[in-house]
Design a protein around this nucleic acid. Sequence first.
DNA 1: TTCAGGTTTAATTAATTGGTCAATAAATAG
DNA 2: CTATTTATTGACCAATTAATTAAACCTGAA
Lengths: 205, 205
Amino acid sequence: MKKTPTEVKILVSAKKVFYQKGLKGARMQEIADDAGVNKAMLHYYFRSKEKLFDKVFEESVQSVTPVLMNVFLEDSDLNTKIAHLVEMLIDLFMNEPYLSNFIVNELSQNPEKLFLNVLDLEDGLIGKVIPLINQQLQVEIEKGNINSEIRSAELIVNIMSLCLFPIMSQTVLQKTLGIDDERMIRFMNKRKQTVTQFVLDAIKP
Amino acid sequence: MKKTPTEVKILVSAKKVFYQKGLKGARMQEIADDAGVNKAMLHYYFRSKEKLFDKVFEESVQSVTPVLMNVFLEDSDLNTKIAHLVEMLIDLFMNEPYLSNFIVNELSQNPEKLFLNVLDLEDGLIGKVIPLINQQLQVEIEKGNINSEIRSAELIVNIMSLCLFPIMSQTVLQKTLGIDDERMIRFMNKRKQTVTQFVLDAIKP
DNA sequence: TTCAGGTTTAATTAATTGGTCAATAAATAG
DNA sequence: CTATTTATTGACCAATTAATTAAACCTGAA
């Protein structure tokens, strides 16, 4: 079941439109126009708006989790791992500006979609990563390298927060602080260092 | 122009529905049903969906800015101010779970709505707060209490990130980490301390 | 060449949904 | 008590939009 060119064009456009406008805000006609195909093609290949959306959503999640997984599983000390994670997150979500908003939004509006995708408790992101990081933290604590109060879940939440929130509220930030697109990119790139530093400072003993 | 009971009921329900489903996702009928009034009343009092939305949006922004403003302007040292800000943000947005999502979403999809509300560059949140925090930071740096690399904008962004992101992705967090509502509240309450500590640690010299 | 399969199109349908309106009820003023 | 304004209702309209369908169009195999 190789994807036809039309199918691919539709998916690309659907992604673009759904990312920006969400499930309810998106219009099938707009997706068709953007893809340069007849609207009926969307139904021909994907049956319904919801099905098309689900495909896009699934692909969006799958574009993220393996990348994160790799960083978490790489064989490096905690500091480097944190630095890599920060860099990865910022790069990934800066290059796809609406992605973080899209995932967080649609997921908080339709929590049931979570199970089909992210949550593979056995060997998915959560099941594998939390214990691993926990263990790695334990080692560093014993070495006296970091504060013994640090919880892995909390650490990850903090890193995600510091990386994703500014991207999710990019529009607001840019408007309020009056910075253009180019400067925003520089700001976020610089943030790779400052966030890493911020996090490392915060877990020092 | 005192608000009639019906008008209030509509606004309460509109808030509830718009917060959860956004401008496009919300249905006038659903708002009417929730308020227990005839759909025509929504138009009678607010003309159009967009107008009703704008009212809700305006009120939502105005429920936040004064509170933040107070914390920023209070006469206390930086540490206390940070602790208060963190506590305030978490309390405020935990009590209105969809508020942060609502504001960030709708604002990133309709950036033009920003100007009418948040952005009073003369004496609004941004115009007053940034210089003030900057100045306060300068004092602390000279006293040698904090790291001289800290930028006020960045500090605020970090605090906001750490407080708001977990609330915005609450659903996801709860599902992935498998915690119920009650435990989530405890988690976020404990976070008032850990985030404050995290931030303070990170700006130490 | 022809036929069969999938593909594409334009036109149409059906459902949803924001918005209106005329009739009615309730409240208020005179 | 009556007249007038204000509030409320249910039925309806118009526009939008997802979905369907039937016919046309390829394309490659026989």
